[in-house]
Simulated assay, not measured.
Amino acid sequence: MARKYAVGLGQERGWSVYVHRDVHQALGRLLTGRSDGDRVSHVELRRRLSGTGLPMRHTAEVLAALDLLHDDRAPAARNWIERRTAELPDGSASDVRGWLLWLLDGDARSRPRSPGTLHSYFGNVRPIVERWAEHRSQLREITREDVTNVIAGLRGSQYTSVLTALRSLFLYGKKYKRVFTNPMRGIRVGRRPPGPVMPMTEDEIAHVQATAQTPAARLAVALAAVHAVRGEAIRTLQMDDLDFQENRVTLDGNVQPMASLTRAALRAWLDERHTRWPRTLNRHVLVSRQTALGTGPVSAHFLRHQLTKHGVSLDRVRADRVLGEALATGADPLHLAAIFDISETTAVRYAVLARQLLQDDALGNEQ
Results as ranks from 00 to 15, higher is better:
200 M>N: 02
111 R>T: 10
52 T>K: 12
121 Y>V: 04
250 T>G: 02
317 V>Y: 08
124 N>I: 00
356 Q>T: 14
345 T>F: 02
324 G>R: 06
145 E>L: 12
278 P>Y: 05
278 P>W: 05
5 Y>N: 06
211 T>R: 08
301 H>E: 12
171 L>E: 13
346 T>V: 14
55 P>Y: 11
193 P>K: 13
199 P>C: 06
262 T>D: 01
351 A>R: 10
102 W>R: 04
285 V>T: 05
167 R>L: 03
347 A>G: 06
154 L>Y: 08
312 V>T: 00
306 Q>K: 06
143 T>C: 11
295 T>E: 08
50 S>A: 14
9 L>W: 02
167 R>H: 15
290 Q>K: 15
74 A>S: 11
254 N>H: 07
24 H>I: 03
26 A>F: 06
356 Q>H: 13
218 R>A: 07
216 A>C: 02
97 R>L: 06
171 L>R: 15
54 L>T: 10
72 D>C: 06
135 H>A: 11
224 A>I: 01
281 L>G: 12
178 R>T: 12
9 L>K: 11
157 S>Q: 11
3 R>E: 14
230 R>V: 02
162 V>K: 03
272 E>Q: 09
191 R>A: 15
316 R>W: 04
30 L>D: 03
345 T>N: 09
58 H>V: 01
343 S>M: 05
25 Q>D: 10
35 S>R: 15
16 S>E: 02
189 V>M: 08
191 R>C: 07
300 A>S: 14
41 S>W: 07
129 V>I: 15
199 P>A: 07
237 L>Y: 01
48 R>H: 08
234 I>D: 00
305 H>F: 08
4 K>D: 12
73 R>Q: 11
305 H>E: 14
108 A>D: 14
220 A>W: 01
